[in-house]
Write a protein that binds this DNA or RNA. Structure first.
Lengths: 239, 239
DNA sequence: ACAAAAGTGTTGTACGTACACCCATGA
DNA sequence: TCATGGGTGTACGTACAACACTTTTGT
């Protein structure tokens, strides 16, 4: 890609991997606040064998980056993400015994049959209380959480964690779980109502106290503005 | 990095390059607005030979990503950046005849001896009117410009394009060049004065009409918040 | 009836914008 | 003295946080 350097001296010096930080929400009946959870995979190979790590794998030669992320995501959870975005390329020389550049994606998953991991080597963890992970994966998750919290402030990304129909309290719960603090229900209602991202239905959720109106996400507005990035068909279209 | 996939079938299938979008400002005496400029390198090798391309090169096995970006930046301009940040990892299968994943950085350069390119094969271009570039580099520059414009709105990054001492009009010019629209001098002054990022000096710039007070950048505040990213020594410390 | 969540109203503060106006210097 | 950019004052609109209040259900 340049005229100042020759091709790599020895082929295969640097390998490219793709990993994905997959966020979902668990509504813990015990706690009063929902918590952000993510699936991890137990390593069965040499570097950090036995340790928990982010789902991922080597990039295939003919495989797009985003496809690789979706693939490992499906292999781990059996689900398709409601949001998928590149997070960062981690390539520190000493992050692995051999030189590996990891293109890391982060994804949102709507609530579903979450607590049914595909295998014994997959488990869901609370994002706030992770054990020490393989490689620099603790650090990667920290950064992904930072991005998630940032993005929730200026985009509609929280909808990516909710099912088709939801109440305003549901949506507020998502914000509170991600931001880690309580929000004023009254002000929250107005903000989100005036944002144009919600379509109110005539259905209500009953069962406790006053029934709450159900809303639907307005698919005309993107979950997040990404600028002039490669506009491959996003998994987002599934939302 | 996973237990589900073996190591790459053939070593060297995928190569890793690092490129950098280097922004600076040119104060065109003809135009009434400064313009964003960037250096490009003419390719002397096979894919897209003769076309202009972003400065970059193959990643060395023992070289950090950010170091590689700084290196090609210095090779191209002879200067050290006042800001350097990873932009995105571009890895589309068909972006190059052979599979190349490019980790792209973007940088800001203070005004200096800009119009003295190191070689015949380096030239500065107006970012708004680029010729067709090699590979997907037009697309990459578009995305970098989008990030620059975004970031100028919520961070103090514009200071990275100015020398140590500057007037408020200088700073406003930077914002206007990046945003592409005029700003109210009165309101701009108050906004930036209340932001806590400026230290006013007792020096003034004379030469035309009423002298303007010179300001200094407050190094206590970061040019931009980057979250919990690898905190290697930033080039930013040079600012 | 009472608790609790859904939903509405009101008020104060902060901040961006528009624009009128004064100040200081070079020519 | 006059044109021009430096710098101040003021008024308006929007957005958000705080919080009092009404409504509607389950028990």
């Amino acid at each position: 890609m340049t005229q100042t350097h020759a091709a790599p001296t020895a082929a295969g010096d640097i390998r490219v991997a793709v990993s994905t930080v997959i966020f979902s929400l668990r509504r813990d009946p015990g706690s009063d606040r929902a918590s952000v959870v993510l699936p991890l995979v137990r390593r069965t190979r040499d570097p950090h064998e036995g340790a928990w790590a982010l789902p991922g794998g080597w990039l295939d030669t003919a495989e797009e980056l985003e496809t690789a992320a979706s693939r490992t995501l499906a292999e781990t959870t059996g689900l398709a993400p409601s949001y998928l975005e590149q997070l960062y390329a981690f390539g520190d020389v000493h992050r692995s015994p051999t030189r590996v550049v990891s293109i890391v994606y982060w994804a949102l998953l709507r609530e579903g049959p979450l607590l049914a991991p595909a295998s014994e080597n997959v488990a869901w963890f609370d994002a706030a209380t992770l054990p020490p992970l393989a490689f620099d994966h603790n650090h990667i998750v920290d950064y992904a959480l930072w991005r998630l919290r940032n993005k929730v402030g200026y985009s509609r990304i929280a909808h990516g964690l909710l099912p088709e129909l939801f109440t305003l309290a549901d949506l507020r719960e998502v914000y509170e779980a991600i931001l880690g603090r309580d929000l004023d229900p009254a002000n929250f209602r107005r903000q989100v109502e005036n944002s144009g991202t919600l379509i109110s239905t005539e259905q209500f959720r009953t069962g406790s106290h006053r029934p709450a109106r159900l809303y639907r996400y307005n698919h005309d507005v993107e979950l997040a503005e990404r600028g002039p990035l490669p506009t491959e068909p996003h998994p987002e279209v599934l939302s």
